[in-house]
Design a protein around this nucleic acid. Structure first.
Lengths: 251, 251
DNA sequence: CGTTAGCTTGATTTTCATCAATACTCGTGG
DNA sequence: CCACGAGTATTGATGAAAATCAAGCTAACG
């Protein structure tokens, strides 16, 4: 498909092989996330303008996209793969604040710098716009803001659910809750649920759930001992007792 | 296990002394939060329409406004006072997901029911709209969605900061961080910062920070023993050593 | 194969929750 | 005005959950 010049560029000290290619032609109409992304509500005219101003970005697993504090000049829609968003304390403690999946966007900032770090969890491709282009297009297409508001509101709802998990759940509940939400997403995206793929490392899971890797590991083995799940591989889970898992996940 | 944190009132069925009055005349132009609320961007025409469709709601401290699962038919802007948003686990564990201050709004839901509980932290007055009125007005005033997007984005940023606190900070860091953010807000709102008022109970602080009331209390006394703060009253704090407090708050 | 990064398991310590008692605050009625 | 009582906050003793420290695994890759 589209060939791109691949380059290794340090982004703020972060080494990432990130390839970019400007696109010719009318990709937007045939975009894989056409029906789900913020641009789903745009008419053909606006889509044509988007086609002018977007760029495709390809990331390898673990590549950084942007960092907290960088100038927020770009805005991205995820086409494929997944990103993680994280925040750090000065001494290195990390909290993953969310995962970004195909159709969702990242990089919309309240101020003029990004407020978190975005990195690729897997290989990923993204559709990139400059914030100024986006604003321009948005002004002529008010339904875009309304769509983005709805999507942001969804993200906020998830964030609040996650606060309940972080502040009030115990380790087994956190893990169970994590697994059920992965299961939901996988089945929503027509991906296999048995075994379920865990696309992220134990460290990522730990930093997402507010635990250590040791506790994550121990909790998995405990759930396994309790016959609630099985771990055919480190990165695959299959659920034996869904009742019990859901029970735990609810708190 | 204590199931009920607010023993005073049966919350189910929303027992609350809540007074409503439909408004005559053109309040919107003179509204106390005119320059800060989502309606700040509206023109006179739209304001006139808002005047038609809004209602004032007055809440006493601890009154409930809505509960998780209720039909999300109304939308509110806080005029004065403060609300808390919370989520519950089935066994009663509670997480406060945020506080809502004058100028901010509550009740915008991704789906058709509310996703959290909203209660008055202090006496409060709110401006109420039906969601359908709001949508109608929004369709003719696209800048409204854009303003609401910006405000929601701000809230999302706060939510993510709070996830870092909940998942990765220790009790003294949580308390210090809580105090510095209260100080910031108080000074932004031209309210006294020394002593700083704590408008919420220990239970609210605990449920906001993911701690127990005992740990909150002990942490306050420890900060006091370390001469970082003083507690002239239970609900007032004054900071003796701002350096140290900020140091702690940063992690 | 050997090396390494990631994962698991075990022993110990730390932090915070829980349980329990005591003190403070404020409103009410004697 | 004081005494009482309910609600709220503090303090203390103990326990449990999870973090930390420290080896061992396991699997992927040269």
């Amino acid at each position: 498909m589209n060939l791109s010049r691949s380059q290794t560029e340090p982004v703020n000290g972060m080494v990432c092989r990130r390839s970019e290619a400007s696109t010719a032609g009318s990709f937007c109409q045939n975009c894989v996330v056409r029906t789900r992304a913020f641009c789903a509500v745009l008419d053909d005219d606006a889509l044509a303008r988007l086609d002018q101003s977007h760029t495709i970005v390809n990331l390898d697993s673990e590549d950084g996209l942007f960092m907290e504090g960088d100038d927020a000049t770009s805005f991205f829609t995820v086409l494929s793969g997944a990103l993680r968003l994280s925040k750090l304390l000065p001494d290195g403690r990390r909290q993953i604040t969310g995962f970004v999946l195909p159709g969702e966007f990242v990089g919309l900032s309240a101020g003029d710098t990004y407020v978190d770090n975005a990195e690729a969890l897997t290989e990923a491709s993204l559709c990139r716009f400059t914030v100024s282009d986006l604003k321009r297009i948005g002004q002529d297409n008010p339904e875009m803001d309304s769509q983005m508001l709805a999507m942001t509101n969804n993200t906020l709802t998830q964030a609040r659910d996650h606060m309940l998990l972080l502040g009030r759940m115990k380790a087994p509940e956190k893990i169970a809750s994590f697994l059920t939400s992965l299961l939901d997403r996988a089945s929503a995206a027509d991906q296999p649920t048995d075994p379920l793929a865990l696309p992220m490392s134990r460290a990522d899971i730990a930093d997402y759930l507010g635990l250590t890797i040791e506790t994550v590991s121990r909790t998995f083995t405990r759930l396994k001992a309790d016959k609630i799940i099985a771990l055919p591989e480190h990165n695959r889970v299959s659920v034996n007792n869904m009742e019990a898992l859901v029970q735990l996940a609810e708190g």
